[in-house]
Amino acid sequence: MQNSSFAKRIFGQDRNILQLLVITVLVFALMSYLNPDKFLRYYNFESITYIMPELGILAIAMMIAMLTGGIDLSVVGIANLAGILAGVFFHSVIVGTSQSTGMVLLYTGIGVLMALAIGLLAGVLNGFLISKLRITPILATLGTGQIFTGLAVVLTGGPAIVGFPDAWNFIGNGKILGIATPFILFVIVAGAVAVLLTRTTLGVNLMLIGTNPRAAIFAGLRKDRMIFYSYMMTGLLAAIAGIILSGRTNAAKSDYGASYLLQAILIAVLGGTNPAGGKGRVLGVSIALIALMLLSSGFQILRFSNHLIDFIWGGFLLLVIALNAFRNSDR
């Protein structure tokens, strides 16, 4: 009895989570069947825990923007800009001088804060354009995405920035108690966002605004301010993803992760987020993320070219759209 009510609380009323779990198990079974000896290795799953977090955080950011019926096409631009800004900072203070570990740690800390600050600032800009100037989210973030990527190009002049301090690389490559640091970060971020969305006024307001913007205003919700906050959050999350990405690859470049945009949208939509607003759960997005990471690592082991994997991601997105449409037509 208690078990079933617990399950209900976790899975929610909709059957979406269940459908996702089924998809995940199917993907897992298919990939294990296709190449049992290579897919089912500890190493494979470990590498997934390193690659997954940056994409997962971007997908959660995308979900937050979608909650109010918006979208954020600038997340990849923000992520790259955050990594590059920190890289430029490290180059100006660290390279060429031998400093004590304490100083390096301090500088790394400053770098992290700078990256987060630029993400927050980018989010403020998006939020301002969308909630105050009333520009449609698609066009506003399309424009700011160009600006952020453009600034990244201006800062680097084109080539990648390499040579981050070890402490920075630890964020993307390290291990704490045998678990990948980025994965731990992902769990913390996902948990925090889940609590924020389900247990705070802000989260509930965002859902209500997304469900019916007009009714939300007549009910006295401060729509503009809430939307503003949601894009700030999106920007901050994108910056965290940028830190992890540049830490993992030990480099930052203006056109890294270009395909992440489509993938983040796909994971958010697959995870049950309604792009028209009002619906979206961190748990759903996380399961969708796992399913798609298994899928893409499986195809990589099968030596599919990256272009074909892009095709599979796109095809999967269309398939999910069709599936969701059929499921919703029952009601």
Partner: peptide
């Protein structure tokens, strides 16, 4: 989605 499918 369709753009990514066709390009891929």
């Amino acid at each position: 989605g369709t753009g990514s499918v066709v390009r891929g």
